[in-house]
């Protein structure tokens, strides 16, 4: 029996945590890993898994078809080349971004949980960086994986598997480089837009409109009007930038005679430069947004 008293506070056994703390690096890593899982709907309901899965599946189709042909048909066919792969799946990239970016940054704003992050080891800058890294990785899944599969498929479809690898290993560098830069570009635009609003619908529509609208505008300005000034519109379209720098990195001019790259008539290197600039701008906007957002 305790000392008799009119009022008492009971010791319920709560302790302060006195052990070692993992630190900031681990905190960012945790944010990164959790965000990346969330992008694919892992740890969430079925509804959150369906859309990313469908889009990744669709993006894989060209590569899988090539792989299947390589295995089944013993002939030297290369239906889809690395350089026009992005042209084929560009809508999927945009949609995938529009589906996952709003969840990646919107949930914390919607649930007002930003304050919980900022009250812990993660700073505002860390948060933006961690989220961007997760988004970039998530985008790599849809840019790099199908390309690598395509590479294997192409190798299988030749008579001489080892010979193809030996001959085409230099393709690997542009494959990885285009995937990395493409993912970085799309991720930075998507997150910069999505971070502006807690509402998923606004963010999704904003991202889609940005990608598709600039694409359409470039299509008309470059393909239909073709004047000195309007041709510059091609640099405002992220999808065309991806097409441009991948043509540059693969050192293959566009094969499609209708390609806007031909209509614009610019050298290809500037596409890569503009893509890098736009990526940095997007990341800058994202960081700036998290410096100011009300936690």
């Amino acid at each position: 029996m305790t000392e008799p008293a009119a009022g008492s506070i009971y010791d319920l056994g709560y302790r302060r945590y006195e052990g070692a703390r993992a630190g900031r690096r681990r905190a960012i890593w945790a944010l990164y890993a959790d965000s990346l899982r969330g992008a694919f709907g892992l740890g969430r309901g079925t509804a959150a898994k369906i859309a990313p899965a469908i889009l990744i599946g669709l993006a894989l189709i060209p590569a899988v078809v090539q792989l299947a042909i390589g295995v089944l048909v013993p002939a030297d066919v290369e239906l889809i080349t690395h350089d026009d792969y992005y042209n084929l799946v560009k809508f999927l990239l945009g949609l995938y971004c529009a589906v996952i970016a709003p969840d990646m940054v919107g949930r914390d704003q919607r649930n007002r949980s930003l304050v919980l992050y900022f009250a812990r080891a993660i700073s505002r800058l860390d948060y933006a960086v961690g989220k961007y890294a997760a988004m970039w990785t998530a985008m790599l899944v849809i840019t790099l994986v199908p390309q690598l599969l395509l590479f294997v498929g192409n190798a299988l479809s030749t008579d001489d598997f080892g010979g193809y690898l030996g001959q085409s290993w230099d393709q690997l560098l542009p494959i990885v480089a285009t995937a990395a830069l493409g993912a970085a570009l799309i991720a930075s635009i998507g997150l910069a837009i999505a971070a502006q609003t807690p509402r998923r619908a606004f963010a999704t529509v904003g991202i889609i409109v940005t990608f598709v609208f600039t694409l359409a505008l470039a299509g008309v300005m470059v393909g239909e009007l073709t004047t000195e000034v309007t041709r510059l519109a091609i640099f405002a379209s992220p999808f065309n930038l991806v097409e441009g720098f991948s043509a540059w990195m693969f050192r293959v001019p566009p094969s499609d005679p209708d390609s806007l790259l031909l209509a614009a008539g610019y050298p290809l290197a500037p596409y890569a430069a503009v893509a890098v600039a736009v990526t940095l701008l997007g990341v800058g906007l994202l960081i700036r947004r998290y410096q100011r957002v009300e936690a």
């Binding site: 029996m1 008799p4 008293a5 009119a6 009022g7 008492s8």
Partner: peptide, 18 residues
């Protein structure tokens, strides 16, 4: 009384005061 009641099995606790 408190001391006496504590010996009872039916009694779980006793507090004095006020």
């Amino acid at each position: 009384l408190a001391r006496a009641l504590l010996a009872e099995t039916a009694v779980r606790g006793v507090e004095l005061g006020d």
